[in-house]
């Protein structure tokens, strides 16, 4: 059977952003902690940030306005806007958004809690490390979405499965980054704690946990991205509510404008949640940025 290479390449391209989000790697900011480059402030900053998206929007307007793309393939910005308007007016968007938010939040809270607890267990005790770490390191190489069939068998297609999948997806980056951070707290601070009369609890509370906090936040940012990713997929497979469901339903009756509205909502959710995490990260890690604390 001949293989259509072009469609494979398309698949590749589609998979790329998801892969990027799933990669539990090293935070790029760790490599360059002291950024010398001055970032523009105020209006200049806004222009820098907004120029790219505005240009993209312009291209979208032009392409639909001049009829380069068929409106059933990609709706015009106007059509998308009115679709969003209708969805908001009849309350559908809010209703499904609330449900999606709830699932993401519950899954995130459970996943973060479990991930942190496991990281503490395996980071702070030899037994915990032996029992947990190699298992978790092994499991993390499995794409979390490959669990969907088994998860359906175990949890059915109700609310649980969505929360469980999100929690599982969230747990791994939290565990990996926090565990690594605990393990790489500098030995010289451990010596300091020993000579300062800090007990075991004091060592954990004053040295290990604050020392591991940057790693935890790195994990949290990956986690939030993964939470949305897993939620999108699980809401599109088997759901009767949520933004993913709204989009799947729209697909079955050919409403591309509603699909695009859903995409934009997801994008905004991702952006807002990442901004929130960064905000809390900056608050918690003021000691890392010398200029702010002076």
């Amino acid at each position: 059977m001949p293989i259509d290479l072009s469609s494979l390449r398309d698949l590749d391209r589609l998979a790329a952003p998801a892969d990027e989000a799933l990669r539990v790697g090293v935070d790029d900011r760790l490599a360059t902690p002291h950024r010398a480059r001055r970032r523009p402030r105020g209006l200049g900053f806004l222009v820098d940030k907004a120029l790219g998206p505005l240009l993209l929007l312009g291209v979208w307007f032009t392409a639909s306005g001049l009829g380069w793309v068929d409106s059933t393939t990609l709706p015009s910005p106007g059509q998308t806007w009115s679709a969003a308007h209708i969805l908001i007016a009849n309350g559908q968007l809010q209703e499904h958004l609330l449900i999606s938010l709830q699932r993401a939040a519950v899954g995130l809270v459970i996943g973060v809690t479990v991930g942190v607890l496991l990281a503490l267990l395996s980071g702070l005790s030899r037994v915990g490390e032996v029992l947990l770490d190699s298992n978790l390191q092994m499991l993390r190489s499995m794409p979390i979405l490959a669990l969907v069939p088994l998860a359906i068998v175990w949890f059915g297609i109700g609310e649980e499965i969505k929360v469980v999948l999100v929690a599982l997806g969230v747990m791994f980056p939290i565990y990996l980054n926090t565990h690594t951070a605990i393990r790489s707290v500098d030995a010289k601070y451990i010596d300091l704690a020993a000579t300062s009369g800090l007990g075991r609890i004091g060592l954990i509370r004053r040295v290990i946990l604050p020392g591991a906090l940057p790693g935890f936040f790195t994990g949290l940012r990956f986690s939030v991205a993964i939470a949305w990713l897993v939620l999108v997929v699980s809401e599109q497979i088997n759901a009767s509510s949520g933004i993913g469901y709204l989009m799947t339903q729209a697909r079955s009756i050919g409403q591309t404008d509603v699909i695009v509205v859903g995409l934009i909502v997801y994008a905004l959710l991702g952006l807002i949640s990442d901004t929130l995490v960064r905000f809390f990260e900056r608050r918690a890690l003021t000691w890392r940025s010398t200029l702010q604390s002076r």
């Binding site: 980071g123 702070l124 005790s125 030899r126 490390e129 605990i182 393990r183 790489s184 707290v185 500098d186 030995a187 010289k188 451990i190 010596d191 020993a194 075991r200 060592l203 290990i208």
Partner: peptide
């Protein structure tokens, strides 16, 4: 200097 945290944690 990276450490094996379990070492200093044991007496």
């Amino acid at each position: 200097m990276a450490l094996d945290a379990s070492v200093p944690l044991t007496t």
